[in-house]
């Protein structure tokens, strides 16, 4: 509401007429007073003094700033926790998919072992396969991610009412390299246990299973 409208409404109100009769007309009625304090002033004393008047609600800017900061911290903590949860879930998912893939192809590895593949070869096969998938998948994923990021940035920049911080080309490249390296590392680590288990399969199991695997 415009302050002039508020003054007019207050002036016309029967409720406040006795106040205006005592204190004069509300032509200079104000809603907010900014009190700027000097360095070293006792902010708590002034706050209490203003509060005692009963008609003023003091708002301390420092407290507001602190409150906003603590809310932002909480928000960042929530986002951070979500990020870690998502990363953890992705790692588990990658691990599970590789582990299940190994379980699914258990008989295949058994055939290779029976036909003379060494444990080392099976190990190399599975780890190599995992790395190939992560390299190709990571490359495609990053490329798609970068395009999506650039597209989102240009879309948002047309709508923004606040300064949009976007990464520079070199920053984006560094991020991509880090994500790529982490992705390949996670996939490789996730395939170590399945590879270890596959390399220890009993080759004689091949003698008693079905037509194909």
């Amino acid at each position: 509401m415009n302050i002039d409208t508020a003054r007019q409404l207050a002036k016309d109100s029967d409720w406040f007429s006795s106040i205006w009769a005592k204190a004069g007309q509300p032509d200079n009625l104000i809603s907010v007073i900014l009190v700027r304090l000097e360095e070293g002033a006792d902010i708590n004393y002034i706050n209490e003094y203003l509060a005692k008047t009963g008609s003023i609600k003091p708002i301390i800017a420092v407290d507001v700033k602190k409150s906003i900061q603590s809310q932002l911290h909480l928000l960042i903590q929530i986002i951070g926790t979500l990020c870690f949860t998502i990363i953890g879930t992705i790692i588990l998912q990658v691990f599970a998919s590789f582990y299940l893939s190994m379980r699914h192809r258990r008989s295949e590895y058994g055939i290779y072992l029976a036909l003379g593949a060494s444990r080392c070869k099976i190990y190399t096969l599975i780890i190599g396969e995992a790395m190939s998938i992560s390299v190709v998948g990571g490359f495609i994923g990053l490329l798609a991610g970068m395009l999506l990021y650039r597209g989102s940035c240009s879309f948002l920049s047309a709508l923004r009412s606040y300064p949009l911080i976007s990464l520079s080309g070199s920053e984006l490249f560094i991020c991509a390299v880090i994500i790529f390296a982490v992705g390949v590392f996670i996939t490789t680590v996730a395939s170590v246990l399945p590879a270890w288990q596959a390399a220890r399969l009993d080759p004689s199991s091949v003698m008693t299973k079905g037509e194909c695997d």
Partner: peptide, 12 residues
């Protein structure tokens, strides 16, 4: 060389 009781081919 092995010829198992069933074919034991690699499906992929």
């Amino acid at each position: 060389g092995y010829l198992f009781q069933t074919s034991r081919l690699v499906g992929s």
